[in-house]
Design a binder for these strands. Structure first.
Length: 272
DNA sequence: CTAGGTGCCTGATTGC
DNA sequence: TGCAATCAGGCACCTA
C-alpha cells in the first residue's frame, strides 16, 4: 500500500511528467472516487487549467493548478496514478481519467475503490488536519519528543495517526519500531530520552531509504510509479510480512499480532 | 484523550 | 477440485 515513500516517488515523477500540462477533459468511471466537488463541477471546471507543480503532503499527491486550485489525490490501499498515451489500453480499474491536451492522460486506477480525489481552492481544508512531515528539516528531535511525551497510547497506533505525524503506514511503522528496538505496544509517554532518539532516527532513515529505492512493491500490493515501474525497496523490509522467519539480528522468529486492528510484525526478543 | 468497533471494497487466501 | 467464507487495510465515523 502506498505510504510516504511511494507517494513521494509518484509526486516527483508527476512533477517531471505533467508540470505545465493542460487538462482537456475528465471522465469518472466510479464517481464516488471523487470526494469533492460534485462530478459536474469538476468536469466543467478542470478543462483549461494547467498543472503548475506537483508535490506531496502526508500520503496525498498535491497538484497545484492554475486558478489557483488544487487537485489532491489519496491512493489509500490500492490506488495508482499513471501517465500514459491516450492510445494505450485503459485499465479495467480506471476510476478517473484526466485527459491532457497533448495526447496523454493521467489515469487514477483503484481496484479497491478506497482512494479519494479532491478538487478545491483551499487545500488546508483537507491537509490542515495532518501532523508534521517526518522528513522535514524543521522536525527536530525535541519537537518529536514533545509529540510523544503527552500521549498515553501505544506506539503503533500513534505512529499510524496522521494527525500526529503524516505519512507513516503499516509497513514503515513496523520497520521503524523494529529498527528502534521498541515494542509496538510500548506506551509513548514511557520512552527514555535515548529510546525517543532511536525512534526518531529510525523513522527518518527507514523512510529515506525507501524513497532512495523508489518505494516498496509487494507481490499483492502492486505499487507502481507514474510510468508503471515497481519500486525496489522490498529487500529492505526486515519484519513486515516476515512472520515465522528468523530475526536478522538475533534469529528469533518474527511474530505477527494484531494491534489496533492492524497486522503488526515484530521481533519478541529485540523489541520489548 | 484513548480504545474499540463498523463500513467502505475486491483480489487473494484459507477452509471445508 | 471448487466454491464460500475470510482476510487485508487507510481512514472516516461512531460509541463507550
Amino acid at each position: 500500500m502506498p505510504e510516504l515513500p511511494e507517494v513521494e516517488t509518484l509526486a516527483r515523477d508527476l512533477q517531471r511528467l505533467v508540470r505545465g500540462a493542460e487538462f482537456e477533459a475528465v471522465t469518472l468511471y466510479w464517481p464516488r472516487s471523487l470526494a469533492m466537488p460534485a462530478p459536474d463541477e469538476l468536469k466543467q471546471g478542470l478543462p483549461g487549467r494547467h498543472v503548475l507543480d506537483v508535490s506531496r503532503r502526508g500520503k496525498f499527491v498535491q497538484l497545484r493548478l492554475s486558478g489557483p486550485s488544487y487537485l489532491l489525490i489519496h491512493l489509500r490501499m490500492s490506488g495508482h496514478l499513471q501517465v500514459e498515451s491516450n492510445t494505450d489500453p485503459l485499465s479495467p480499474y480506471a476510476r478517473a481519467v484526466f485527459a491532457l491536451t497533448d495526447g496523454r492522460r493521467l489515469v487514477f486506477s483503484d481496484p479497491r475503490k478506497f482512494g479519494r480525489i479532491y478538487w478545491l481552492t483551499q487545500p488546508d481544508l483537507v491537509l490542515g488536519a495532518l501532523g508534521p512531515e517526518p522528513l522535514a528539516d524543521d522536525l527536530s528531535l525535541e519537537t518529536f519528543r514533545s509529540l510523544l511525551a503527552v500521549r498515553k497510547g501505544a506506539l503503533k497506533p500513534l505512529l499510524l495517526n496522521q494527525a500526529l505525524l503524516a505519512g507513516l503506514g503499516n509497513i514503515y511503522t513496523d520497520e521503524a519500531l523494529y529498527r528502534a528496538g521498541l515494542h509496538p505496544l510500548r506506551k509513548a509517554n514511557s520512552l527514555a530520552a535515548e529510546e525517543t532518539a532511536r525512534l526518531y532516527a529510525a523513522i527518518r532513515s527507514v523512510l529515506q531509504q525507501a524513497i532512495d529505492n523508489r518505494g516498496t512493491t509487494l507481490a499483492d500490493a502492486r505499487y507502481r510509479d507514474a510510468e508503471g515501474q515497481p519500486g525496489h525497496n522490498r529487500d529492505n523490509l526486515l519484519v513486515y510480512r516476515h512472520a515465522g522467519e528468523p530475526c536478522a539480528r538475533c534469529g528469533t522468529p518474527i511474530e505477527r499480532t494484531v494491534v489496533g486492528g492492524r497486522g503488526t510484525h515484530f521481533c519478541p526478543h529485540c523489541q520489548r
